[in-house]
Design a protein around this nucleic acid. Sequence first.
DNA 1: TTAAGTCAATTGTCAGACAACTGAGAGAGC
DNA 2: GCTCTCTCAGTTGTCTGACAATTGACTTAA
Lengths: 252, 252
Amino acid sequence: MSGSPTSKTKRPPFSRLQNELSRLIQRTPPGEKLPSEPVLAKSLGVSRATLREGMRTFEARGLIRRRQGVGTFVVSQLKVIETGLEVLESIERLANRIGLAVRMGELVISETMANPEISERLQVEEGTRLTNIARVIYADDRPVAYLVDILPPNILAESELQSGFNGSVVDFLIQRGNPGLSKSFTDIQAVAAESSIARLLEIQRGDVLLLFTARLYSDMGEIIDFSYSYFLPGYFRFHVVRNVDTHVAYNV
Amino acid sequence: MSGSPTSKTKRPPFSRLQNELSRLIQRTPPGEKLPSEPVLAKSLGVSRATLREGMRTFEARGLIRRRQGVGTFVVSQLKVIETGLEVLESIERLANRIGLAVRMGELVISETMANPEISERLQVEEGTRLTNIARVIYADDRPVAYLVDILPPNILAESELQSGFNGSVVDFLIQRGNPGLSKSFTDIQAVAAESSIARLLEIQRGDVLLLFTARLYSDMGEIIDFSYSYFLPGYFRFHVVRNVDTHVAYNV
DNA sequence: TTAAGTCAATTGTCAGACAACTGAGAGAGC
DNA sequence: GCTCTCTCAGTTGTCTGACAATTGACTTAA
């Protein structure tokens, strides 16, 4: 009973199915029709009911479109989602993908005490010691972003950052693997540059900046990082795909 | 129970089911267990297979968590997603929910010709006639947003807007039901107010504004609306939940 | 007291069937 | 030839019933 004779890792059918479906959709040209459900179910080795459960998740994400009596079709605008705000990606990796040379300058690590505002956002007690990581990001030798991360020392100590830190706290935590990360709750604002930040970014005081204020959650649901990110307009483009919910219209 | 059991609702079962499930999940406290699938299916008047298809979409969005042999549980952080940028919601409805009084002023409808930039974004030929809808949105008698929508006249004619237009093109199109809407691709920028917009919003030229540039897609995949939306900082808060993709870390 | 076994409840998956809808081709009428 | 209607095969939408896998609580024996 407990033996698994020749089976490899026996992943649940649904999990494997999602992977197979994802690959199938990705390699099918947009607008093209997928095989019919009975055919697909047989070829993927699952029942039609299970297949349909999997398809629903892709339909909800807008990757496929199903038309009764006709078939299931792959929708375009796939890469859009990957570069959008839906996925948290470090500037370094993003720039790397589009072939832009970025470097980090002026890494300033300090220890601070949690003031009332920070303590509330990080959900720690007032006065707790915190690691404060600030740095300017340069693209083509021009400053384009100013990033500040604030974390408890038990999450990330100053000594750990002496080597192997490329400027992205998220990348660093992912690489370390502990704690596991889940989501980032990002607030989007437009602000005028105050003098200290203007000097760092080599712009005029009062110039417009895009400000992301983010809380990073571990997979246990705890807040493990609070960050401010100031971006110079024009050097980065942020976008988001928003679903239109026609349901709620009836409830108004 | 509410209404007649023999009523012939024209809405497709799955669409109605999504609405019912959404309401059920919203009014169930986080951490609480939902009724078992057989019970829920019977009470919602659908088969267990259809119910499970619906549940998959909510599970994919992280609103519920299912554990084999135990049950289905409501996950917290529900309101976050609903007020976030993931769902396109009109200012009117958003303000309505948070109890803010908004009104529309100075509705200016005009006809323009597509210039090169617009023609490319709307994917119509240069010189095509377009309906141009501009208006300022007031909250508590202060201007807080300036919205411009640009559409082909066959989508929305000037005459249609004479009655029943509350300021939201999206709400108007949803209510009309044709064409069906699917997604909005929204670009996020920080800009300085130019003089004409500063005058409309009663601010100083050069003050910071949050600018959303959006393309609205029909369910057929066509672009049916191009819009600029200028927001005064402080009156609206936009946020987005970003997933951390730990996979890509290995590919760098 | 502790450990192992039993069992009811719940989700996961499957097979088969029929309903609803679509598009294209066949055929009748002009 | 042309147009309109009808038929029909193909596809997705939904339902029914069943069994497998897993879990947590309860029972029982040492």
